[in-house]
Simulated scan of single mutants.
Amino acid sequence: MNSVATSGAPDMQELFPYADGPRLASAAPDTGSIQLSWQNGDTTQLPWLWLRDHCACAECRHPQTRERLYIPLAPIADAPEMNVIDGHLRLTWADGHRSVFHGGWLHQRRPEVALPNVLPEASAWRDHFTPERIEHAAFLTEKGEQAWLTAILRDGLALLTDGPLVEEEVSRLAEKIGPQRATNFGARFDVRSKPNPNNAAYTAVGLALHIDLPNWHHPPDIQLLYCLQNGASGGESLFADGVRVVEALRAQDPSALRTLSETPIDFRFQDETHDIAVRAPLIDLNADGSLRELRFNNWIRDTLHLPVEQMNAWYHAYRTLWALFHSDEHQLEFTLEPGQMVAFDNRRVLHGRRAFDPNSGPRHLQGTYLDRDMLESRLRVLARQLH
């Protein structure tokens, strides 16, 4: 693995590798800034205040936590003295403070280029999409875990196969990534039919496509479901990609997309000990129009409290989206086998199941949730370790 900074070179208190970048060739003063040129011909311009703000010395960055200590409130009125030595930039400011910048680090952070990013872009499912499959043994290696994390963040769905049939394995796998996200159902939950259920998942009925817990301000990001037993007749798993379906809705009925993305409605879960509710649109879009999250769950929709003149338009839009999600063109169906774990982006990929006969054999899944931040964090750390 390449070191972050070579011996004797400036340490920028950054764990992502930067030492392989080109050496700095020259630095020249400009009005309020410095013009930089590298030996490979690349150039950039950086303001004095930006450079002062990014000094990585022990006075400006905490040497253990790497957190910023300098506060960039005072303007920089005078140009620093500047030198390029061994391909790195050395500055002496008017107050005598000295800053040293690694040439590779500066090259990596030029304003003209994107910052390093190992996270994959979300990719809509194509026709005949099949989820990536990672063997349990491979997941326990850094490269296998990296492949699994990449698939989840890119496709919103991935399968782990050939796992042991032991309880709490879902918790052990989850905690390789980060702490389990607790909800009113606990941190780890069992999915099987039981008497006096407080959720449709704990019955044998079929479950239409949905996301979990849209009634929370921040619904769980990533869901893991680990199959321990599946001898019952029926119970096939169903999935559909929100990114793909929202784009299909945009093409088919843009007014329906506007209605569902601009009209907040109520979602609510209530039992003897909890009453968790939120009001938000069913579809939430980013500024560029791409999908940010879905709140699609027919059981947990509360009273549709809208002006009367908006109700029919909302129901029309909902009916159109429902039909798209439940069409054969957009649904993925398979049987989850014992020893397999399905993981999916709960705020993007809808999931459901066919009804099953609880008298035909045992069916037992264990599940948990993870925060997306933990998956992204783990993927960044693995990228550094495997660099």
Rank of each mutant, 00 (worst) to 15 (best):
S3T: 05
T6A: 10
M12T: 00
Q13F: 00
P22K: 04
R23V: 06
A28L: 04
A28M: 07
S33R: 15
L36M: 10
L36Y: 07
L36G: 10
L36N: 03
D42C: 03
T43S: 09
L49K: 14
A56H: 00
C57G: 13
A58T: 06
A58Q: 11
Y70K: 06
I71A: 01
I76W: 07
P80L: 07
M82C: 13
N83G: 03
V84L: 06
G87D: 03
D95H: 08
H97D: 04
H97S: 12
R98I: 04
S99K: 06
G104L: 11
W105P: 02
L106H: 08
R110H: 08
P116E: 09
E121F: 08
E132L: 07
I134M: 02
A137C: 12
F139Y: 11
E145G: 06
L149V: 05
I152N: 01
L153H: 00
R154K: 15
A158C: 02
T161Q: 11
G163L: 04
P164I: 01
E167S: 13
L173W: 09
E175Y: 03
I177S: 05
R181Q: 13
N184L: 01
H210L: 06
D212I: 10
N215L: 09
I222N: 00
L224V: 08
G231D: 14
F239V: 06
A240Y: 11
V245L: 02
A248V: 09
A248Y: 08
L249W: 15
L249N: 10
L249H: 12
R250Q: 14
A251L: 15
A256C: 13
R258F: 09
P264A: 14
E272H: 13
E272W: 02
T273M: 03
T273C: 01
A280I: 05
P281N: 10
I283Y: 06
E293W: 09
L294S: 10
F296V: 01
D302Q: 07
L304W: 09
E309Q: 07
M311Y: 14
N312M: 13
Y315V: 11
H316L: 10
T320M: 11
A323P: 13
L324E: 14
F325N: 01
H326C: 04
D328Y: 11
L332Y: 14
L332G: 09
T335W: 14
N346F: 08
A355L: 01
D357A: 05
N359L: 09
L365N: 02
L365E: 08
G367D: 05
S377M: 12
L379N: 02
